[in-house]
Write a protein that binds this DNA or RNA. Sequence first.
RNA 1: GCGGAUGUAGCUCAGUCGGUAGAGCGCCGGUUUGUGGUACCGGUUGUCGCGGGUUCGAUCCCCGUCAUUCGCCCCA
Length: 413
Amino acid sequence: MAGLQPPRGTHDLIADTMRRHRHVVETAARVTGTYGFEEWATPIFEDTRVFSRTLGETSDVVSKEMYTFEDRGGESITLRPEGTAAICRALVTNGLTQTLPQKVFYQGPMFRYERPQKGRFRQFHQIGAELIGAEGPLRDAEIIAMAQNVLEALGLGDDVVLELNTLGDLASRAAWREALVAYFRDHAEALSEESRARLESNPLRILDSKSEQDRRLLDAAPEFGNFLNEDSRRFWDELRHYLTAFGVKFVENPRIVRGLDYYSHTAFEFVTTKLGAQGTVLAGGRYEGLIEQMGGPAIPAIGWAGGIERLALLLDAPPELPPGIAVVPMGDSALLQAAPIVQSLRAAGFRAEIETRGNVKKRMERVVKSGASHAVVLGDDELARGVVQLRDLSAREQREVAIPELVQALGER
RNA sequence: GCGGAUGUAGCUCAGUCGGUAGAGCGCCGGUUUGUGGUACCGGUUGUCGCGGGUUCGAUCCCCGUCAUUCGCCCCA
């Protein structure tokens, strides 16, 4: 089996890595629970149309990053590249469009065929939340506050900054887009090669360009603020007021543009400078047409997703395991006696293990290294008298305890 | 998909101006199978990422490939 490796961009989650991962998930589930959210799990693969229709044919995710294959029945199947579209599909499939709002938390693997880097993988994991049936900007602000709470609960409140933008409604954005394309067309020779290609596929992306020459053009480009219609402007103003009411600090960043087509109005990212080029740790926005595209009614929604690997990388120390109890039998007859003793400890809810290898000194060394809080030492003398030595490993104190009283004695510590 | 760097024991790394490898840590055992992480003694570990080429001979040079990593694109 030598030489076998996990596929490129995938990784095993083991021991403290898994503990970090689970800590992120459990924290997010707990915090979103305080907002009334409940976890859903949808399949990790879906009919390809769930994604291709909704994310935008020209988005990078759809055009070059999807794991798509034909199954044995000839259906086109795609490993989910993100969670929102699948949650909306599930909402419609399960007839939940009549019982709104739905407050959904989800977590699990996502798949994108990308070049891996630190904090970027082909199979990665996300936590996410969707509030489906979000009547107005109050809800957007609340859901962003919830994201902020999750990050704070993970101890990352000081590591991230919330960047906020509005994409306006469809009419505003269409008008602006038209003006923008016209402007860039006039200056096409001055654009970078990449941005010239984006002019056709995804012109809003040019705003995000890191190229010097593009930046110079951007100063004189049509500003979105001038294209916001009255409804969009009001939404944007109210959003910012509500965010302040929820105690959320933010920085306005007009260059935040979502890569996926379904967003409108609110767009936001929590970013960090600690992960190199992968600075976005959690991001989301409002979407108003997606559920209709899935065959349901037009229902506005707001949601976000966070990268578990990226969040886990930012945690300073992995959460620790609770200390256990080590049962250390000495001699063969003690080994037999150790079985019912260790079982009684487990039945009482303790993490308990039998340590049998090596001489007594080695056993004790291993027990201490394992992080156990107590050792239960069983020798022939004691067993003959129905007692064990209960040793508190941090206090280095030992006392004799009758076997039936062991669980109670440990409970007292 | 594009460009750069890296790849030697479980981990961190050294090394050979080309003669098939080493140190620390870890791990295992011992120092009277009845007691503690720091002591002492001993031991273990490698297709030197993989494939091919040059060479009497390659871990070292060349090519390819895979993986990791940094940046671009894009994104969580």
